[in-house]
Every structure is written in structure tokens, then in C-alpha cells.
């Protein structure tokens, strides 16, 4: 068995934290794993990608184009940018909350309509699941728990090989005591959103 998660987002969004939680859960489940992440210059608000591969033979830190089992998109444009990492069988979980680049604010570039992004993805796959992680996190108590909602969403994806309880425990271990409740709630909301979509 080999399973690959690609996580696309913007530097500073918590992509590293999410991949770390998934990685630790995969290790706890007894899998071999290989991961790669982006540090350094790109973390200053640039596009970032984390790769997690686990299973019997995972050795390479990178995955081939089109071979992701799950594409976890922290941001709509970044998800679209990385769509060629997915194939028709890949589940795509996408956060609908945009992070607007400065050049767009300056009026030099434009940000496409979210509906167009969603429609374009749906035109090539029926495995897109969308959620607004920021809204779910706000509902849970704090917008910064958006991360937890997306990890919860991952747990809800069909055939995802790691147990929901394991993912939740691993996530909560990384969270300070006073934020555990909010994160657990956000995790659950993310999980339920994906479950009800399937």
C-alpha cells in the first residue's frame, strides 16, 4: 500500500503543522513514511506545498505528477495551481476561504471568482469536496483553528487509511491545553462537513 497526500497553501497558513500532524499519525499507525516541505524564502507568504507519502515502500520525499490520493487545498487558487498533482480518483478537499495576494490588492492582478474555480474543478472531477475552514473554525470559537477543521476534513475522506480518533489525538497533542476544546470542535465540524458531502 502507498498513500500520498499533497497539501497546497500559502506560507504562514499552517500547511507545515497539518503535514506534521498527518505524518505523526501515519508513524503511530506503523507506516513507513517520507515527507517533504518548504522552508525558507517561500514561507514569506508565497505558494507552499507539503508532500506526505506513507505505506510499505515510501522512500521518496516527492510524488509524481497526478499520483496524489488526496489533495488538501488550504486556499482556492493554490489548489487550482496544484491540480495536476491529482487524477480522476483523487479526493480533493478545498478550503473556500481565499488569501488574496498583494498584487491583487494593488490592482495589478485579479483573483478569479471562487465559483469559477469550483466549476472548473468540477468539470474534470466529481471528487471535489469544498468547505470554508475559516467559517467552521470561527463557529468552533477561533478563526486560527481553520487548520484543525481541515485535518478533521481529511479524516472524513473516503478510504483515508488513518483512523479519525488517531488523527484527532495527534492534533490535540500539538495544541496548548486552553485551545484543545476549540480545536476538537473545529476538527469535528470539518469531519462532518466532508462526511455529509460524500
Amino acid at each position: 500500500m502507498r498513500y500520498c497526500v499533497q497539501i497546497a497553501g500559502v506560507g504562514g497558513q499552517g500547511v507545515l503543522l497539518a503535514s506534521s500532524v498527518l505524518g505523526h499519525a501515519a508513524m503511530a499507525a506503523g507506516h513507513k513514511l517520507a515527507m517533504s516541505e518548504v522552508h525558507g524564502m517561500a514561507q514569506r507568504g508565497g505558494s507552499v506545498l507539503s508532500t506526505l507519502r506513507f505505506g510499505d515502500e515510501a522512500l521518496s520525499p516527492l510524488e509524481a505528477t497526478g499520483q496524489a490520493d488526496l489533495l488538501l487545498g488550504f486556499e482556492p487558487v493554490e489548489t487550482y495551481r496544484m491540480l495536476n498533482l491529482a487524477n480522476k480518483d483523487t479526493y480533493i478537499v478545498m478550503n473556500l476561504q481565499p488569501t488574496v495576494p498583494v498584487k491583487v490588492s494593488m490592482g495589478a492582478e485579479s483573483y478569479p471568482a471562487i465559483d469559477d474555480i469550483v466549476a472548473n474543478i468540477r468539470s474534470v472531477t466529481d471528487r471535489l469536496i469544498t468547505l470554508n475552514a475559516t467559517e467552521l473554525a470561527t463557529q468552533a470559537g477561533k478563526a486560527v483553528a481553520a487548520n484543525a477543521a481541515l485535518i478533521g476534513a481529511t479524516a472524513g475522506v473516503k478510504d483515508f487509511p488513518l483512523e479519525r480518533s488517531l488523527l484527532e489525538e495527534t492534533l490535540l497533542e500539538t495544541v496548548p491545553e486552553r485551545f484543545k476544546e476549540i480545536n476538537a470542535k473545529a476538527f469535528q465540524l470539518g469531519y462532518e462537513t466532508v462526511r455529509s458531502a460524500v
Binding site: Q43, G45, R81, E109
Partner: peptide, 21 residues
């Protein structure tokens, strides 16, 4: 052998170079 990557319709996406915080 790998599976065929998705090829979504082309869209003009905003660039996202690293920026001053």
C-alpha cells in the same frame, strides 16, 4: 505506471511570490 493527471481548463491565476510580511 502512473495515472493520468487532471488537466483542468486554463485559468489566469494571480502570482504569489514571497513578500515582505
Amino acid at each position: 505506471e502512473g495515472r493520468e493527471p487532471l488537466s483542468p481548463p486554463p485559468m489566469t491565476l494571480p502570482t504569489r511570490p514571497p513578500m515582505l510580511c
